[in-house]
Design a protein around this nucleic acid. Sequence first.
DNA 1: GGATATAATGACAACGGTTTTCAGTGGCGC
DNA 2: GCGCCACTGAAAACCGTTGTCATTATATCC
Lengths: 142, 142
Amino acid sequence: MTTTPPFVPDAQLRSAGLASTAQRRAVLALLAGRARPLTAQEIHAELTRCVRPIGLTTVYRALHSLADVGLLHIFDLDGQRAYRHCGATPHQHLICTRCDAVIECPPDVVTSWLSGLHRHTGFVPHPDRLDLRGTCAACADT
Amino acid sequence: MTTTPPFVPDAQLRSAGLASTAQRRAVLALLAGRARPLTAQEIHAELTRCVRPIGLTTVYRALHSLADVGLLHIFDLDGQRAYRHCGATPHQHLICTRCDAVIECPPDVVTSWLSGLHRHTGFVPHPDRLDLRGTCAACADT
DNA sequence: GGATATAATGACAACGGTTTTCAGTGGCGC
DNA sequence: GCGCCACTGAAAACCGTTGTCATTATATCC
């Protein structure tokens, strides 16, 4: 019997058609489960400090590759690119402007409204390109 | 009798508490009525070529000042900051991924959905920070 | 309307994030 | 285990943006 580990970078890389290298696994593992997107510089610093030294160039290239195959989503953290490991299923992003956390919102909460918007304006929304900024439940409590 | 011109940079600057300089007026006039946000480099190039030479530093500072007082909104055009003259009234941004045009959407189309989202997820949306990407009506026709 | 304090401008240099280059290394198929 | 080819990493180049400082224009007071 095989268990289903919550996160296996190696498998994700292979099924995406990317070579499974130590550096890519490290980047993917670092981003796994993080609510907040991380910049290339942050990833490089944290990997070098806590895991093993890695070239900054390699970080940038790994992030590009991973984003190209859809394993990472790109966000804008005041002018800098930041990367986050997102689920494969379509979803919307709720972005907390206080803690920068990204909450994934299931699309069924939105689809009916989006179709109404389409009828109303003629604009054809791209369902997985909806970014909504606000305050997350955790930050709103404080 | 006084007519009401559609766009008076000078008045907008003064009522925002900014000094009305030729450079700021030029930047504001260039952005007036543009659907697509422009980058600082584009603004500098177009002003220098078509209107009058202007320092690149001045363009950046004018854009900062104008954005600070809310006359311009800042967008992200694949990694670069881009600026657009937006209406003073609250609105959502519908961003065309094909032509980069930004359509302003009146908030009443959205507010009811946003409050539902709040009840559903605990996330407190910031109504004027909703960016929705898709295809504008003009591009969808082609 | 003219003088003056103050803020804005512009050329240049510096800064920081990102990309390119190129030689060396390691993953993956045979 | 071997070899091809993609991946890696250090350094330099690149490019958008910001800081510096002397000059100029704006807004205010008289």
